[in-house]
Amino acid sequence: MAVCPECEAEIELKEAIKGEIVQCPDCGVELEVVSVNPVELAPAPEEEEDWGE
């Protein structure tokens, strides 16, 4: 069980692979698996797209 660095949601990860990109179920941020055993997640580099008005 890993924790989202942005919102602390618990993220279930079956056999996570280093470098894999996962999405946080609560805040939707894209996360990169930076290490395994224990699994650690860091915000994946994302291009800043505009949203809204």
């Binding site: 942005e6 999405q23 609560d26 805040c27 939707g28 949203w51």
Partner: peptide
């Protein structure tokens, strides 16, 4: 529901 989403239209 806590709705605060980095992606999508309905954030």
């Amino acid at each position: 529901r806590i709705v605060k989403d980095r992606t999508g239209i309905y954030r």
